[in-house]
Simulated scan of single mutants.
Amino acid sequence: MSSTRTMAATKRLTADALAEALVERTGHAFVDRQRLQRALTHASARGVNAGTDYERFEFLGDRVLGLVVADMLLAAFPDAAEGELSLRLNALVNAEALSEIAEDIGLPDLIRAGSDVRGLEGRKRVNLRADALESLIAVLYLDGGLQAARAFIHRYWHPRSQASGAARRDAKTELQEWAHQAASAVPTYQIDSREGPDHDPLFTVTVRVGAFQPATGSGRSKREAEQAAAAALLLREGVWNAA
Results as ranks from 00 to 15, higher is better:
residue 114 G to R: 07
residue 114 G to Y: 04
residue 114 G to E: 03
residue 116 D to A: 15
residue 116 D to S: 14
residue 116 D to M: 14
residue 116 D to E: 14
residue 116 D to W: 02
residue 116 D to K: 13
residue 117 V to G: 01
residue 117 V to M: 05
residue 118 R to Y: 00
residue 118 R to V: 01
residue 118 R to G: 00
residue 119 G to K: 12
residue 119 G to N: 13
residue 119 G to R: 13
residue 120 L to H: 11
residue 120 L to W: 09
residue 120 L to F: 12
residue 120 L to P: 01
residue 122 G to L: 08
residue 122 G to I: 03
residue 122 G to Q: 03
residue 122 G to C: 03
residue 122 G to M: 02
residue 123 R to P: 00
residue 123 R to G: 10
residue 124 K to F: 00
residue 124 K to Y: 00
residue 124 K to M: 12
residue 124 K to W: 05
residue 125 R to T: 02
residue 125 R to Q: 14
residue 125 R to M: 12
residue 125 R to I: 01
residue 125 R to N: 09
residue 126 V to K: 07
residue 127 N to M: 12
residue 127 N to G: 11
residue 127 N to Q: 12
residue 127 N to D: 10
residue 127 N to Y: 12
residue 128 L to H: 08
residue 128 L to N: 03
residue 128 L to D: 01
residue 128 L to M: 13
residue 129 R to I: 05
residue 129 R to A: 13
residue 129 R to C: 15
residue 129 R to W: 14
residue 129 R to Y: 15
residue 129 R to N: 15
residue 130 A to Q: 03
residue 130 A to H: 04
residue 130 A to G: 14
residue 130 A to I: 06
residue 131 D to W: 06
residue 131 D to I: 00
residue 131 D to Y: 02
residue 132 A to R: 06
residue 133 L to D: 11
residue 133 L to E: 07
residue 133 L to T: 12
residue 133 L to W: 10
residue 133 L to A: 11
residue 134 E to Q: 15
residue 134 E to H: 15
residue 135 S to M: 09
residue 135 S to Y: 09
residue 135 S to N: 07
residue 136 L to R: 08
residue 136 L to N: 09
residue 136 L to C: 05
residue 136 L to E: 05
residue 137 I to H: 09
residue 137 I to L: 11
residue 137 I to T: 11
residue 137 I to V: 15
residue 137 I to P: 09
residue 137 I to N: 10
residue 138 A to T: 04
residue 138 A to S: 15
residue 138 A to R: 07
residue 139 V to K: 05
residue 139 V to G: 05
residue 139 V to R: 09
residue 139 V to F: 07
residue 139 V to N: 03
residue 139 V to S: 04
residue 140 L to A: 10
residue 140 L to I: 10
residue 141 Y to M: 05
residue 141 Y to K: 07
residue 142 L to H: 06
residue 142 L to C: 05
residue 142 L to V: 01
residue 142 L to W: 08
residue 142 L to R: 13
residue 143 D to C: 10
residue 143 D to E: 06
residue 144 G to H: 03
residue 144 G to S: 11
residue 144 G to Q: 04
residue 145 G to I: 11
residue 145 G to M: 10
residue 145 G to S: 11
residue 146 L to V: 13
residue 146 L to F: 12
residue 147 Q to K: 14
residue 147 Q to G: 11
residue 147 Q to F: 08
residue 148 A to E: 10
residue 148 A to M: 07
residue 150 R to Y: 00
residue 150 R to N: 05
residue 150 R to M: 01
residue 151 A to D: 13
residue 151 A to M: 05
